[in-house]
Design a protein around this nucleic acid. Structure first.
Lengths: 161, 161
DNA sequence: CCTTTTTGCTAGCTAAACTAGCAATGTCCT
DNA sequence: AGGACATTGCTAGTTTAGCTAGCAAAAAGG
Protein backbone atom coordinates (compact mmCIF):
# COMPACT_ATOMS: atom_id res chain seq x y z
CA UNK A 1 0.00 0.00 0.00
CA UNK A 2 1.67 3.19 -1.14
CA UNK A 3 1.90 6.43 0.81
CA UNK A 4 -0.45 8.16 -1.55
CA UNK A 5 -3.08 5.46 -1.36
CA UNK A 6 -3.08 5.47 2.41
CA UNK A 7 -3.44 9.21 2.56
CA UNK A 8 -6.09 9.78 -0.01
CA UNK A 9 -7.79 6.42 -0.35
CA UNK A 10 -7.70 6.90 -4.08
CA UNK A 11 -6.17 3.74 -5.38
CA UNK A 12 -7.57 1.04 -7.55
CA UNK A 13 -8.10 -2.04 -5.39
CA UNK A 14 -5.58 -4.75 -6.28
CA UNK A 15 -7.59 -7.75 -5.17
CA UNK A 16 -11.28 -8.67 -4.95
CA UNK A 17 -10.98 -8.60 -1.17
CA UNK A 18 -9.57 -5.07 -1.20
CA UNK A 19 -12.40 -4.00 -3.43
CA UNK A 20 -14.95 -5.45 -1.01
CA UNK A 21 -13.31 -3.78 1.99
CA UNK A 22 -13.18 -0.45 0.19
CA UNK A 23 -16.85 -0.73 -0.76
CA UNK A 24 -17.73 -1.34 2.86
CA UNK A 25 -15.70 1.64 4.06
CA UNK A 26 -17.27 3.88 1.45
CA UNK A 27 -20.76 2.64 2.30
CA UNK A 28 -20.00 3.28 5.95
CA UNK A 29 -19.12 6.90 5.28
CA UNK A 30 -22.25 7.34 3.19
CA UNK A 31 -24.30 5.83 6.01
CA UNK A 32 -22.66 8.15 8.50
CA UNK A 33 -23.58 11.03 6.20
CA UNK A 34 -27.20 9.83 6.15
CA UNK A 35 -27.20 9.60 9.95
CA UNK A 36 -25.91 13.18 10.12
CA UNK A 37 -28.80 14.27 7.96
CA UNK A 38 -31.24 12.37 10.15
CA UNK A 39 -29.88 14.07 13.25
CA UNK A 40 -30.20 17.43 11.52
CA UNK A 41 -33.83 16.58 10.79
CA UNK A 42 -34.61 15.55 14.35
CA UNK A 43 -32.86 18.61 15.68
CA UNK A 44 -35.04 20.80 13.48
CA UNK A 45 -38.19 19.04 14.65
CA UNK A 46 -37.20 19.21 18.31
CA UNK A 47 -36.01 22.81 17.91
CA UNK A 48 -32.72 22.09 19.60
CA UNK A 49 -29.22 23.06 18.65
CA UNK A 50 -26.78 20.46 17.37
CA UNK A 51 -24.71 19.92 20.49
CA UNK A 52 -27.67 19.80 22.87
CA UNK A 53 -29.19 17.02 20.78
CA UNK A 54 -25.85 15.26 20.42
CA UNK A 55 -25.52 15.30 24.20
CA UNK A 56 -29.01 13.87 24.57
CA UNK A 57 -28.24 11.09 22.11
CA UNK A 58 -25.03 10.31 23.94
CA UNK A 59 -26.84 10.08 27.27
CA UNK A 60 -29.40 7.71 25.72
CA UNK A 61 -26.70 5.43 24.34
CA UNK A 62 -24.79 5.37 27.60
CA UNK A 63 -27.96 4.69 29.54
CA UNK A 64 -28.64 1.68 27.32
CA UNK A 65 -25.20 0.39 28.20
CA UNK A 66 -25.97 0.88 31.88
CA UNK A 67 -23.26 3.54 32.20
CA UNK A 68 -23.39 6.80 34.11
CA UNK A 69 -22.68 10.06 32.34
CA UNK A 70 -20.95 13.00 33.99
CA UNK A 71 -20.73 16.58 32.69
CA UNK A 72 -17.06 15.86 32.09
CA UNK A 73 -17.95 12.87 29.87
CA UNK A 74 -20.22 15.10 27.82
CA UNK A 75 -17.48 17.69 27.42
CA UNK A 76 -15.06 15.02 26.17
CA UNK A 77 -17.60 13.41 23.85
CA UNK A 78 -18.56 16.71 22.24
CA UNK A 79 -15.08 18.20 22.34
CA UNK A 80 -16.23 21.32 24.18
CA UNK A 81 -15.01 22.87 27.43
CA UNK A 82 -16.53 22.01 30.79
CA UNK A 83 -17.65 25.62 31.02
CA UNK A 84 -19.66 25.25 27.80
CA UNK A 85 -20.97 21.96 29.13
CA UNK A 86 -22.24 23.68 32.26
CA UNK A 87 -24.25 26.05 30.09
CA UNK A 88 -25.41 23.21 27.87
CA UNK A 89 -26.69 21.37 30.93
CA UNK A 90 -28.30 24.56 32.21
CA UNK A 91 -30.26 24.71 28.95
CA UNK A 92 -31.21 21.04 29.00
CA UNK A 93 -32.18 21.22 32.67
CA UNK A 94 -34.20 24.37 32.12
CA UNK A 95 -36.06 22.73 29.24
CA UNK A 96 -36.73 19.62 31.32
CA UNK A 97 -34.70 17.21 29.19
CA UNK A 98 -32.17 16.17 31.83
CA UNK A 99 -31.56 16.34 35.56
CA UNK A 100 -28.32 16.73 37.46
CA UNK A 101 -28.03 14.24 40.30
CA UNK A 102 -25.26 13.96 42.87
CA UNK A 103 -22.68 11.31 42.10
CA UNK A 104 -23.04 8.57 44.70
CA UNK A 105 -19.32 8.17 45.42
CA UNK A 106 -17.72 11.49 44.41
CA UNK A 107 -19.12 14.60 46.01
CA UNK A 108 -17.53 16.90 43.43
CA UNK A 109 -19.16 15.12 40.55
CA UNK A 110 -22.66 14.89 39.09
CA UNK A 111 -24.44 12.35 37.01
CA UNK A 112 -26.67 13.49 34.20
CA UNK A 113 -29.97 11.68 33.85
CA UNK A 114 -32.38 12.03 30.94
CA UNK A 115 -36.01 12.56 31.88
CA UNK A 116 -38.73 10.16 30.75
CA UNK A 117 -40.37 12.99 28.83
CA UNK A 118 -37.18 13.73 26.90
CA UNK A 119 -36.57 10.08 26.09
CA UNK A 120 -40.14 9.72 24.85
CA UNK A 121 -39.85 12.90 22.79
CA UNK A 122 -36.62 11.71 21.20
CA UNK A 123 -38.01 8.31 20.25
CA UNK A 124 -41.21 9.88 18.99
CA UNK A 125 -39.18 11.87 16.46
CA UNK A 126 -36.94 8.89 15.81
CA UNK A 127 -39.93 6.58 15.37
CA UNK A 128 -40.86 7.24 11.76
CA UNK A 129 -37.26 6.82 10.61
CA UNK A 130 -36.97 3.71 12.76
CA UNK A 131 -40.09 2.26 11.17
CA UNK A 132 -38.55 2.64 7.73
CA UNK A 133 -35.28 1.17 8.96
CA UNK A 134 -37.08 -1.80 10.50
CA UNK A 135 -38.89 -2.32 7.21
CA UNK A 136 -35.58 -2.23 5.36
CA UNK A 137 -34.25 -4.86 7.74
CA UNK A 138 -36.88 -7.33 6.55
CA UNK A 139 -34.69 -8.14 3.57
CA UNK A 140 -31.91 -9.39 5.85
CA UNK A 141 -31.74 -12.85 7.38
CA UNK A 142 -31.16 -13.43 11.06
CA UNK A 143 -27.60 -14.46 10.29
CA UNK A 144 -26.99 -11.32 8.28
CA UNK A 145 -28.31 -9.10 11.04
CA UNK A 146 -26.11 -11.01 13.46
CA UNK A 147 -23.05 -10.25 11.34
CA UNK A 148 -24.10 -6.63 11.05
CA UNK A 149 -24.56 -6.29 14.80
CA UNK A 150 -21.15 -7.84 15.35
CA UNK A 151 -19.69 -5.48 12.76
CA UNK A 152 -21.05 -2.43 14.55
CA UNK A 153 -19.56 -3.72 17.77
CA UNK A 154 -16.15 -4.37 16.23
CA UNK A 155 -16.05 -0.95 14.58
CA UNK A 156 -16.97 0.64 17.89
CA UNK A 157 -14.06 -1.16 19.56
CA UNK A 158 -11.67 -0.25 16.73
CA UNK A 159 -12.59 3.40 17.19
CA UNK A 160 -12.12 3.58 20.94
CA UNK A 161 -8.35 3.98 20.74
CA UNK B 1 -46.65 -3.47 19.28
CA UNK B 2 -48.06 -1.11 21.88
CA UNK B 3 -47.97 2.68 21.77
CA UNK B 4 -45.57 2.82 24.64
CA UNK B 5 -43.18 0.36 23.07
CA UNK B 6 -43.05 2.29 19.84
CA UNK B 7 -42.38 5.53 21.61
CA UNK B 8 -39.75 4.50 24.08
CA UNK B 9 -38.34 1.33 22.58
CA UNK B 10 -38.49 -0.19 26.03
CA UNK B 11 -40.32 -3.40 25.50
CA UNK B 12 -39.23 -6.96 25.88
CA UNK B 13 -38.96 -8.45 22.40
CA UNK B 14 -41.68 -11.00 21.81
CA UNK B 15 -39.92 -13.15 19.24
CA UNK B 16 -36.32 -14.13 18.47
CA UNK B 17 -36.52 -12.06 15.30
CA UNK B 18 -37.61 -8.97 17.21
CA UNK B 19 -34.75 -9.48 19.59
CA UNK B 20 -32.28 -9.64 16.71
CA UNK B 21 -33.70 -6.53 15.08
CA UNK B 22 -33.59 -4.64 18.35
CA UNK B 23 -29.98 -5.69 18.93
CA UNK B 24 -29.06 -4.39 15.50
CA UNK B 25 -30.79 -1.07 16.08
CA UNK B 26 -29.10 -0.65 19.44
CA UNK B 27 -25.71 -1.58 17.98
CA UNK B 28 -26.32 0.94 15.23
CA UNK B 29 -26.89 3.75 17.71
CA UNK B 30 -23.78 2.74 19.64
CA UNK B 31 -21.82 2.77 16.40
CA UNK B 32 -23.18 6.19 15.54
CA UNK B 33 -22.05 7.31 18.98
CA UNK B 34 -18.56 5.95 18.29
CA UNK B 35 -18.50 7.77 14.94
CA UNK B 36 -19.47 10.99 16.71
CA UNK B 37 -16.55 10.53 19.05
CA UNK B 38 -14.23 9.86 16.13
CA UNK B 39 -15.37 13.04 14.40
CA UNK B 40 -14.81 14.95 17.64
CA UNK B 41 -11.28 13.56 17.74
CA UNK B 42 -10.50 14.48 14.15
CA UNK B 43 -11.96 17.92 14.68
CA UNK B 44 -9.66 18.43 17.66
CA UNK B 45 -6.64 17.30 15.67
CA UNK B 46 -7.52 19.47 12.69
CA UNK B 47 -8.41 22.39 14.96
CA UNK B 48 -11.72 22.94 13.23
CA UNK B 49 -15.16 23.55 14.61
CA UNK B 50 -17.84 20.89 14.38
CA UNK B 51 -19.85 22.24 11.49
CA UNK B 52 -16.86 23.17 9.36
CA UNK B 53 -15.61 19.59 9.63
CA UNK B 54 -19.10 18.19 9.07
CA UNK B 55 -19.31 20.26 5.89
CA UNK B 56 -15.94 18.95 4.76
CA UNK B 57 -17.00 15.35 5.39
CA UNK B 58 -20.20 15.94 3.47
CA UNK B 59 -18.32 17.34 0.50
CA UNK B 60 -16.02 14.30 0.51
CA UNK B 61 -18.94 11.87 0.53
CA UNK B 62 -20.74 13.72 -2.25
CA UNK B 63 -17.57 13.89 -4.28
CA UNK B 64 -17.21 10.12 -4.00
CA UNK B 65 -20.71 9.78 -5.38
CA UNK B 66 -19.78 12.08 -8.26
CA UNK B 67 -22.25 14.72 -7.10
CA UNK B 68 -21.79 18.47 -7.00
CA UNK B 69 -22.30 20.36 -3.77
CA UNK B 70 -23.74 23.86 -3.59
CA UNK B 71 -23.71 26.22 -0.60
CA UNK B 72 -27.45 25.59 -0.41
CA UNK B 73 -26.86 21.82 -0.12
CA UNK B 74 -24.50 22.43 2.77
CA UNK B 75 -27.03 24.65 4.51
CA UNK B 76 -29.70 21.94 4.22
CA UNK B 77 -27.37 19.14 5.30
CA UNK B 78 -26.21 21.00 8.40
CA UNK B 79 -29.55 22.61 9.16
CA UNK B 80 -28.11 26.13 9.19
CA UNK B 81 -29.09 29.25 7.26
CA UNK B 82 -27.55 30.16 3.94
CA UNK B 83 -26.12 33.24 5.65
CA UNK B 84 -24.27 31.07 8.14
CA UNK B 85 -23.16 28.88 5.27
CA UNK B 86 -21.66 31.87 3.51
CA UNK B 87 -19.56 32.56 6.59
CA UNK B 88 -18.69 28.88 6.96
CA UNK B 89 -17.45 28.84 3.36
CA UNK B 90 -15.55 32.07 3.95
CA UNK B 91 -13.69 30.30 6.77
CA UNK B 92 -13.03 27.15 4.76
CA UNK B 93 -11.95 29.15 1.73
CA UNK B 94 -9.69 31.37 3.84
CA UNK B 95 -8.07 28.28 5.39
CA UNK B 96 -7.58 26.72 1.96
CA UNK B 97 -9.86 23.73 2.50
CA UNK B 98 -12.37 24.46 -0.23
CA UNK B 99 -12.84 26.63 -3.31
CA UNK B 100 -15.97 28.24 -4.67
CA UNK B 101 -16.34 27.65 -8.39
CA UNK B 102 -19.02 29.00 -10.69
CA UNK B 103 -21.82 26.57 -11.43
CA UNK B 104 -21.57 25.59 -15.09
CA UNK B 105 -25.27 25.99 -15.90
CA UNK B 106 -26.61 28.38 -13.25
CA UNK B 107 -24.90 31.71 -13.03
CA UNK B 108 -26.38 32.50 -9.61
CA UNK B 109 -25.04 29.29 -8.08
CA UNK B 110 -21.68 28.01 -6.96
CA UNK B 111 -20.19 24.61 -6.55
CA UNK B 112 -17.99 23.91 -3.59
CA UNK B 113 -14.85 21.91 -4.30
CA UNK B 114 -12.53 20.46 -1.68
CA UNK B 115 -8.82 21.10 -2.26
CA UNK B 116 -6.36 18.25 -2.64
CA UNK B 117 -4.55 19.46 0.48
CA UNK B 118 -7.72 19.35 2.56
CA UNK B 119 -8.66 15.89 1.31
CA UNK B 120 -5.18 14.62 2.09
CA UNK B 121 -5.26 16.22 5.54
CA UNK B 122 -8.63 14.66 6.32
CA UNK B 123 -7.56 11.16 5.27
CA UNK B 124 -4.29 11.55 7.12
CA UNK B 125 -6.20 12.05 10.36
CA UNK B 126 -8.71 9.40 9.37
CA UNK B 127 -5.97 6.94 8.44
CA UNK B 128 -5.06 5.53 11.83
CA UNK B 129 -8.69 4.87 12.68
CA UNK B 130 -9.20 3.40 9.24
CA UNK B 131 -6.27 1.06 9.74
CA UNK B 132 -7.85 -0.28 12.90
CA UNK B 133 -11.20 -0.59 11.18
CA UNK B 134 -9.63 -2.45 8.27
CA UNK B 135 -7.97 -4.79 10.75
CA UNK B 136 -11.29 -5.40 12.47
CA UNK B 137 -12.80 -6.25 9.09
CA UNK B 138 -10.43 -9.20 8.75
CA UNK B 139 -12.74 -11.25 10.91
CA UNK B 140 -15.57 -10.88 8.41
CA UNK B 141 -16.00 -13.00 5.30
CA UNK B 142 -16.55 -11.51 1.86
CA UNK B 143 -20.19 -12.47 2.08
CA UNK B 144 -20.57 -10.82 5.45
CA UNK B 145 -18.99 -7.60 4.22
CA UNK B 146 -21.30 -7.77 1.22
CA UNK B 147 -24.33 -7.97 3.49
CA UNK B 148 -22.97 -5.14 5.60
CA UNK B 149 -22.39 -2.93 2.58
CA UNK B 150 -25.91 -3.65 1.37
CA UNK B 151 -27.22 -2.88 4.87
CA UNK B 152 -25.54 0.52 4.89
CA UNK B 153 -27.07 1.24 1.50
CA UNK B 154 -30.55 0.18 2.56
CA UNK B 155 -30.39 2.23 5.76
CA UNK B 156 -29.26 5.23 3.76
CA UNK B 157 -32.26 4.84 1.46
CA UNK B 158 -34.62 4.35 4.40
CA UNK B 159 -33.39 7.60 5.89
CA UNK B 160 -33.76 9.77 2.82
CA UNK B 161 -37.52 10.11 3.26
C1' DC C 1 -42.73 39.65 -21.04
C1' DC C 2 -43.49 40.17 -16.47
C1' DT C 3 -44.07 37.96 -12.03
C1' DT C 4 -42.39 34.72 -8.77
C1' DT C 5 -38.78 31.79 -6.97
C1' DT C 6 -34.16 30.61 -6.03
C1' DT C 7 -29.37 31.53 -4.91
C1' DG C 8 -25.81 33.40 -2.24
C1' DC C 9 -24.53 37.42 -0.17
C1' DT C 10 -24.16 41.64 3.55
C1' DA C 11 -25.46 43.83 7.87
C1' DG C 12 -26.64 43.81 12.41
C1' DC C 13 -28.17 40.95 16.44
C1' DT C 14 -28.22 36.75 19.59
C1' DA C 15 -26.73 32.41 21.13
C1' DA C 16 -23.24 29.35 22.23
C1' DA C 17 -18.63 28.51 22.21
C1' DC C 18 -13.94 29.86 24.42
C1' DT C 19 -10.24 31.17 28.28
C1' DA C 20 -9.19 32.15 32.97
C1' DG C 21 -9.75 31.30 37.40
C1' DC C 22 -11.97 29.32 41.69
C1' DA C 23 -13.76 26.36 45.65
C1' DA C 24 -14.54 21.81 46.89
C1' DT C 25 -13.20 17.25 46.79
C1' DG C 26 -10.48 13.29 45.70
C1' DT C 27 -5.82 11.00 44.95
C1' DC C 28 -1.18 10.18 45.59
C1' DC C 29 3.20 10.20 47.95
C1' DT C 30 6.16 10.15 51.69
C1' DA D 1 -1.84 11.42 58.85
C1' DG D 2 -0.57 15.45 56.12
C1' DG D 3 0.68 18.15 52.23
C1' DA D 4 1.09 18.53 47.29
C1' DC D 5 -1.27 17.85 43.20
C1' DA D 6 -5.19 16.60 40.12
C1' DT D 7 -10.00 16.64 39.03
C1' DT D 8 -14.71 18.31 38.88
C1' DG D 9 -18.05 21.62 37.78
C1' DC D 10 -18.95 26.23 38.23
C1' DT D 11 -18.90 31.78 37.30
C1' DA D 12 -17.35 35.78 34.71
C1' DG D 13 -16.06 38.02 30.77
C1' DT D 14 -14.69 37.55 25.70
C1' DT D 15 -14.89 35.73 20.98
C1' DT D 16 -17.01 32.89 17.53
C1' DA D 17 -20.56 31.26 14.92
C1' DG D 18 -25.17 31.03 14.60
C1' DC D 19 -29.71 33.76 13.50
C1' DT D 20 -33.21 37.13 10.91
C1' DA D 21 -34.00 40.58 7.46
C1' DG D 22 -33.34 42.14 3.27
C1' DC D 23 -31.08 42.55 -1.38
C1' DA D 24 -29.41 41.97 -6.36
C1' DA D 25 -28.84 38.78 -9.95
C1' DA D 26 -30.36 34.97 -12.35
C1' DA D 27 -33.70 31.28 -13.39
C1' DA D 28 -38.33 29.45 -13.86
C1' DG D 29 -43.04 29.73 -14.99
C1' DG D 30 -47.16 31.65 -16.38
Amino acid sequence: MSEVSTVTERWVPQTPREEIVLSTLTAMRAFSDAMDRMHTGIRGEMEMNASDLAALRMVIVREQRGEWVSPHDIAVHLGISTASTTKLLDRLTESGHVERRPHPHDRRARIVVITDAARAEFFRHFAQRMTRMRAAMDSFSDDELGSITRFFGEMGLALQE
